[in-house]
């Protein structure tokens, strides 16, 4: 691969990863925590109504996981396309 197509492939892979992670970010907070909250509240997680749990606990835990997954996958992409740091 020429350096140009290589950089391009890296960028596309990056965009794809970011889009997937941002979809999850959107689903756990805006959908589960806000838009679908009444629907989810009919289910329970221990003493939590599920929608309420997403809004005040679950979304935050997911955010943390998302950032570490991103950092980990990007490191792999860097190794694959570049020569590592």
């Amino acid at each position: 691969m020429s350096s140009k197509t290589k950089a391009n492939a890296y960028w596309q892979a990056n965009l794809k990863l970011v889009s997937v992670l941002l979809c999850i970010w959107f689903i756990v907070s805006f959908l589960c925590g806000i838009v679908l909250v009444d629907f989810l509240n009919q289910f329970r997680l221990g003493g939590y109504k599920l929608g309420f749990w997403f809004a005040q606990q679950g979304s935050i835990y997911t955010f943390v996981v998302l950032i570490f997954v991103y950092a980990h996958k990007m490191k792999k992409l860097d190794q694959q396309f570049g020569s590592g740091e």
Binding site: L21, S29, A55, F63, L66, I67, Y70
Partner: peptide, 13 residues
């Protein structure tokens, strides 16, 4: 809770 933590996902990505 969501607003002041979810911002970090955007910031990081």
């Amino acid at each position: 809770l969501m607003g002041w933590t979810g911002g970090y996902v955007i910031l990081a990505l």
